[in-house]
């Protein structure tokens, strides 16, 4: 392996990292909002909310992200109504099309993870909150959401890592994020191995940092487990006392 060339490659690829991060961040952020809405529709028990959400999740989980991306980026432009609408300045941009496709895609997967988390909240906890006279909003904020998030976080973490990797598809619609720049470098230099290793290492580094952050959040959300790990004797005494 040619280290001088690998170093040059790294310098070429580094400026592409912010775009990858931005795509992933936006998709995860907007996706989480949409996913929460979908999960609430699914558990609402109202057929009129439940079935559209089911159909959405089925469609977006059953088709490749690439098809969704192409439908939005190339497909929507087919309709004059879309081309003449006020949304066209957004739907014309590959960046926003990528963000929209990634958001819609991750929302479908994440909503099932959130739904699992919400369903895992023990019934007794909800009853206890009601018995204390909590309003629905207070109960959601103090009891249901913290417990649900704690339960859903490991699964959600996997989905976030999937999203970081999925941003690479944006290169197919001309966005120059890490994979886009890497593919361009490969086709210019034909030095596949070096470029692949450097680009792969960048993705691994991003995902490594992400998993570390998620582990920190998980620790923060599980104060009881943290206490047990730090002061096993004190925690045990507290239980027996």
């Amino acid at each position: 392996m040619d280290f001088a060339f690998a170093y040059d490659t790294l310098l070429t690829l580094l400026p592409a990292v912010p775009l990858t991060l931005l795509l992933a961040f936006n998709a995860i952020l907007f996706g989480a909002v949409l996913a929460l809405g979908l999960a609430l529709c699914r558990i609402s028990g109202l057929a009129i909310l439940d079935w559209p959400a089911r159909a959405y999740i089925f469609a977006f989980r059953g088709t490749p992200l690439l098809v969704q991306l192409f439908l939005i980026y190339y497909g929507l432009g087919q309709f004059p109504a879309v081309r003449h609408s006020i949304l066209w300045p957004i739907l014309r941009e590959p960046y926003w099309c990528a963000v929209i496709a990634l958001t819609l895609n991750t929302a479908a997967y994440a909503s099932e993870i959130i739904r699992g988390g919400l369903l895992s909240v023990p019934h007794g906890q909800i009853e206890a909150a009601k018995a204390c006279g909590m309003s629905r909003l207070l109960m959601a904020r103090r009891i249901v959401l913290p417990l649900a998030i704690r339960q859903a976080l490991p699964g959600y973490g996997n989905e976030m890592i999937t999203m970081v990797k999925a941003t690479s598809l944006a290169s197919i619609i001309t966005l120059m994020e890490i994979t886009g720049v890497a593919a361009k470098l490969i086709s210019e230099t034909y030095r596949v191995m070096e470029v692949f290793i450097v680009a792969g290492a960048l993705y691994l580094a991003i995902n490594f940092v992400l998993t570390r952050l998620l582990a920190l959040v998980e620790r923060w959300l599980n104060p009881d487990a943290r206490r047990r790990a730090q002061h096993p004797i004190a925690a045990a005494e507290e239980v027996t006392a």
Binding site: K165, S168, L169, G200, L204, F208
Partner: peptide, 9 residues
Amino acid sequence: GIPDLLVIY
């Protein structure tokens, strides 16, 4: 940890 697209390339 790395995108499938990169592996295909």
